[in-house]
């Protein structure tokens, strides 16, 4: 039998779908594949060897995933929460993406290869007054390597519901580890 470190090295060169099957081989393989260190190793392998990369494209019909190793076919993929047929997606970060459907609904953090998702909690800032409405919301997803945490930045602005004039802007940062939003100093200007 090979030592677990070697098994990890071999497994880290396999695509995600195969790994999900191989969790059934035995307990040791399952705990290797589920471990945080293996996730990092697999990500590192994929990045350094440019393998198993997917391109996700949005169109009016929905989201498509293209396997960059066989670029001739696109597969329609189902976002975890679909609103009116069209979902907006953020940048990708280590295989994760954010799916936004409605500005007032919290976005969903999605791992399309694992088909797992997490609905983010409601944002911290409440709507300031009934006469104000959200006019713009922007999301960005990033990895905080210092804290080994994924973060979502949400920048938005409110305008007056009747005049549509800009009133204020704001920024919040979500931490996956803390599973909460934090308000950061307000942007003084329009976005």
């Amino acid at each position: 039998m090979l030592p677990p470190d070697m098994i990890s090295e071999i497994l880290s060169r396999l695509p995600v779908k195969t790994l999900l099957r191989f969790r059934c081989v035995e307990r040791t393989w399952c705990s290797i594949i589920d471990s945080q260190s293996f996730v990092q190793l697999h990500l590192h392998q994929s990045m350094t060897t440019n393998s198993y990369h997917n391109l996700i494209l949005g169109s009016r019909e929905g989201l498509y995933s293209v396997d960059l190793d066989s670029i001739d076919k696109a597969q329609l993929i189902e976002p975890p929460v679909s609103s009116k047929g069209f979902d907006c997606i953020s940048n990708s970060c280590n295989g994760l993406i954010l799916v936004m459907s409605d500005p007032l609904v919290p976005p969903v953090l999605w791992n399309p290869l694992l088909r797992k998702y997490k609905i983010l909690p409601d944002a911290a800032i409440e709507y300031l007054a009934p006469l104000l409405c959200l006019s713009k919301v922007f999301y960005g997803l990033g990895y905080d390597s210092r804290n080994n945490d994924y973060k979502v930045v949400r920048a938005f602005e409110f305008c007056n519901q009747t005049s549509r004039a800009w009133v204020c802007s704001g920024t919040e940062i979500y931490s996956l580890k803390l599973n909460s939003w934090n308000v950061v100093p307000v942007l003084p200007n329009m976005i």
Partner: peptide
Amino acid sequence: LASLIKDRTIIEVRKMFNVENDF
């Protein structure tokens, strides 16, 4: 080794790596 086992069944992989199913 990775490309050899990529499309193999669980039973084939167990046999190749000489591991017992302990589930």
